[in-house]
Design a protein around this nucleic acid. Sequence first.
DNA 1: TAGATTGTTAATCGATTAACAATC
DNA 2: TAGATTGTTAATCGATTAACAATC
Lengths: 214, 214
Amino acid sequence: MDKKKNISMAVIKRLPKYHRYLSELLKNDVDRISSKELSEKIGFTASQIRQDLNCFGDFGQQGYGYNVKELYSQISNILGLSKEYNTVIIGAGNIGQAIANYTRFEKIGFKLLGIFDTNPKLTGIKIRDIEIQDIDNLEMFLKENNVDIGIICVPKINAQKVCNLLVNNGVKGIWNFAPVDLAVPGDVIIENVHLSESLLTLAYLLNEKEDQKE
Amino acid sequence: MDKKKNISMAVIKRLPKYHRYLSELLKNDVDRISSKELSEKIGFTASQIRQDLNCFGDFGQQGYGYNVKELYSQISNILGLSKEYNTVIIGAGNIGQAIANYTRFEKIGFKLLGIFDTNPKLTGIKIRDIEIQDIDNLEMFLKENNVDIGIICVPKINAQKVCNLLVNNGVKGIWNFAPVDLAVPGDVIIENVHLSESLLTLAYLLNEKEDQKE
DNA sequence: TAGATTGTTAATCGATTAACAATC
DNA sequence: TAGATTGTTAATCGATTAACAATC
């Protein structure tokens, strides 16, 4: 499967979008697609699509294009979706509960094992059959379970502390919703969802448009 | 204030991070900072920081650096945070409620005017003094109120329909949490938060690391 | 003044696009 | 076979980094 090393972050960030569009095509019983057709749907150039896919293998066929089912399966593999991932959520506030209630992620192999919070009013409450536990139980839980991904939904003031606890107990992937940049060892992967940054980008772009009108 | 036109998206996406770091510095009573010092904190090169800031003006002073208070205020202005923005949330499910409960955004000028949902079990329920309304009221609400930003938190199947309704009633900014790419006229700004894409990126990176170990 | 640090130009690096031979 | 479309190389474009004169 693997062809080249050192895939650029630009390419990596496009992979989930390929995955989503191919999943749609598959759902609509489309058998094959050319880079040109996919280009029109997904909004990348045909050339870029062919370049991107060729980082990982020769998935197409000259004169035919790409087999949707086959390509979808390859991209799923490339993204690591052939595995299952065990996750825990730390912080059962607004965003923590929202993520916990999502079933989308479960379906593609991200299994929620536990939810933790400091607030005694929350501990004991069940979200989708999972009881919110006191955060004091987290360390033991991590030792007893093989957790791949920690989802940090605590206030920013506590985020680094929680992150350290996760990392010190072998968690290698952090999905961080707190508005801070966490410090981690080099072998730990952080993926940030900085909602404020997204909203501020929107504000900038709205404003830029205004400026151009004048 | 404005200096050059056609700011690249790469620069724009870094602006909120400058804003956040400067806000931290301000909170810690730091008066001045050089591009070199900021570089060490924020993780961009000093050269890049100077280039980025110079897109918008000469905010620094040779031999001194940047005045934190002044620079923070400039960046806030550049981002359009001197204005207030009226927002509505469409979809009062997990993510809609989570966003509605955030007070962070209110503090920087994003005012939530209304929340809408199709589910009769939700209408009438109050979130932070705002009653969830039936989505049938949305069109009239948009005509009666000056809504700048529509926050789409509905299932993907309804997202484009909701988006059209917003756009047809003058909303120029869309903050989209549905896992679809929405079609809008050229004068409407879309900012996507595609959570699955973020999670799949994390999965890829975790897997890539595994591959390298072998 | 001397030291520090900016603003800005030039050099480098990387990513995207264009072109086309290979081939199904 | 002829037409279509890939895989891949080369050209272009844009973004980042380095360097340094200007100057506070």
